[in-house]
């Protein structure tokens, strides 16, 4: 058997084993319901906002909009106000430096006459604050890349571990009460085998965290299990 055939056979085995390993994510969702019922009437709206006050992390706007889309698709009677539309409309009261961290402070903001007036047009019932971020928690392996006028090629194998840790806090803005909390942790490992062409098998950690959190929020607002399942991607 020639060396070429052996090399091709080896690369085939390498590719097949890399694909079969695949990228995987583990998602765990915990929730605490502090009110007996989380009621919402048709036409009432919800706003989902990301926390940006901490220097240690920055809640990604993509995660906030993903959870918003998920809740909008799952809970039919709920109307979601986009984060930017809300923060622009109530500027400057929900900027990172000024946004209320406690519900008592929200009461003060909503008692400002102009804010109160604007609030009446929205029929806002719940405000959901999402805090957390997705971070790279580990990486291993190595890869070499060659660049030449005829083309480029890479060789090697690497893994990346990402962790998403988010908490959603639901405030009832009509009764000024915290009604529930949802915590989501997702850990995923991505694999990047490269033999001439890198073949990234990326774990969609943030997307899975969004799905887990969104599904739980939908269950809160629909009042029962919606049958939506978290599917690892």
């Amino acid at each position: 058997m020639s060396l070429d055939v052996i090399a091709k056979f080896r690369s085939l085995i390498f590719m097949i084993s890399a694909i079969s390993v695949g990228a995987c994510t583990t998602v765990s969702v915990d929730h605490v319901q502090l009110a007996n019922r989380i009621d919402i009437a048709k036409g009432e709206s919800i706003v989902i906002l990301g926390r940006h006050h901490s220097a240690e992390f920055e809640t990604e706007p993509s995660l906030v909009s993903c959870v918003g889309d998920r809740v909008q698709n799952g809970a039919t009677k709920v109307s979601i106000i986009p984060e930017k539309e809300f923060t622009d409309g109530f500027y400057p009261y929900f900027e990172s430096r000024i946004a209320p961290l406690k519900i008592d402070r929200l009461k003060d903001i909503f008692s400002v006459p102009l804010v109160k007036q604007k609030l009446q047009t929205l029929d806002l019932r719940y405000m959901i604050w999402i805090e957390g971020s997705t971070e790279r928690t580990g990486s291993a392996g190595s890869m070499s890349c060659t660049i030449a006028p005829n083309g480029a090629a890479c060789f090697g194998f690497g893994t990346l571990e990402d962790t998403s840790d988010y908490e959603a806090i639901i405030w009832d803005v009509q009764n000024y009460k915290e009604v529930a909390r949802v915590s989501t942790e997702a850990i995923g490992t991505s694999y990047i085998p490269a033999f001439v062409i890198p073949l990234p098998l990326l774990a969609r950690v943030q997307a899975n965290a969004c799905q887990g959190m969104g599904t739980q929020l939908v269950e809160f607002f629909e009042g029962e299990s919606t049958g939506l399942k978290v599917r690892p991607q």
Partner: peptide, 30 residues
């Protein structure tokens, strides 16, 4: 993760950034 640092090797097809893989081990490739 992609390491472009290391020795630079001259080859017939261009030049190569080489980090961990030794040319002696893979003479046909390099």
């Amino acid at each position: 993760m992609v390491r472009l640092l290391g020795s630079i090797m001259l080859t017939k097809r261009g030049f190569t950034f080489h980090s961990l893989i030794s040319a002696k081990l893979y003479p046909r490739f390099w």
